[in-house]
Simulated assay, not measured.
Amino acid sequence: MGKVYRYRGADQANRWRKRAGRRMPSRRLSRPLLGLLFLGVGTLAAAVIQFVIQSTVGLPSTIRNWTEPQPGPLEGRASVIDGDTVEIAGQRIRFSGIDAPESRQYCSDAKGFDYPCGRRAAQALDEFLAASRPLQCSFVDRDRYSRLVGNCDRADGRSVQRWLVEQGFALDWPRYSNGAFAAEQVSAKAAHRGVWQGRFDQPWDWRAANADKIETVSEQSTGVGILGSGCNIKGNISVTSGERIYHLPGQEHYDETVISLGKGERWFCSEDQARAAGWRKARR
């Protein structure tokens, strides 16, 4: 009769099995395998931490905008929204690197009288664009309202942003321009053109102090009123008959209708308002 072995743990069992000619297989991992395992766990943990940090503080714009791909260059007839924003074929475009007075903003002229500098800038832009159509824009980013931000030129190649700053209808916005239009601003200031003829608040300061007078985020994202009200009914004047006709979103000629403030055309907030002002509804 052979010996009786009592198992008192894995190590002792292996010794006894070895004596009996059988060795229990070892469950220990080799050092190289352990190293690879720890490396993989560490890499995964670092990736998770980085994702959490980026989600907390905000992703860079290039990553954030992956879900909103930028379109290629856009060309077409532009409707003026305000002094630094236009619309082409239903697409809102904010000029890059400049800031014009807000639609409801007033400035003081050389004699100290207040005038609507925001609307004056929009009217000047409308006349400038009308002189050489179509407008051509290339895009660099999206702003926090998902509007496209771009550099725009007239059909004759003149930069819209440079002209606006040079004429004093907009300011170089160092926060976003890196001084790209600083030379034009120096020229406008020296010649007392536009807002430089008197006293004014920088548009970004005016917005901060008059948050209740500007449109809400949802209106900036979806509305298209020249006065910054979010109103989107286009009041057009027929070039053939002189008849005043308003177009509602979704009507046949809405997108192609361009509002020219200099010609007396305007935006409305409701059909009642348009009819009261003497406009009739487009037939289709």
Rank of each mutant, 00 (worst) to 15 (best):
Y176A: 05
Q123L: 14
E184N: 10
R154M: 07
W204F: 03
G194K: 02
T222I: 00
P174I: 06
N151P: 00
G230W: 09
S146E: 13
W204E: 08
A208L: 11
W163C: 10
G150Y: 04
T222G: 01
S229R: 15
P203I: 11
R244C: 04
W163S: 11
S218Q: 14
T216S: 15
Q220S: 12
R144W: 02
W206F: 03
R119Y: 02
W206C: 02
I237F: 03
G242F: 00
D205C: 09
A182N: 12
R193F: 08
S177L: 06
H192E: 10
R133A: 08
Q202M: 14
Q202W: 12
I214D: 10
V239W: 12
S146A: 14
G235D: 00
L164H: 04
A180Y: 04
D201N: 12
N236D: 14
I233G: 00
V165G: 04
E243P: 08
G223M: 07
W206L: 05
E184G: 14
C231F: 01
D205T: 14
L171A: 10
C152R: 01
R162M: 03
G118A: 07
F169Y: 13
N232F: 06
D126Y: 02
V165R: 07
K234Q: 06
S177N: 10
E243M: 10
V165E: 06
K189C: 08
A191M: 09
A211N: 08
A211Y: 00
C152I: 01
R144P: 04
G230C: 08
C117V: 06
G235V: 00
S229K: 15
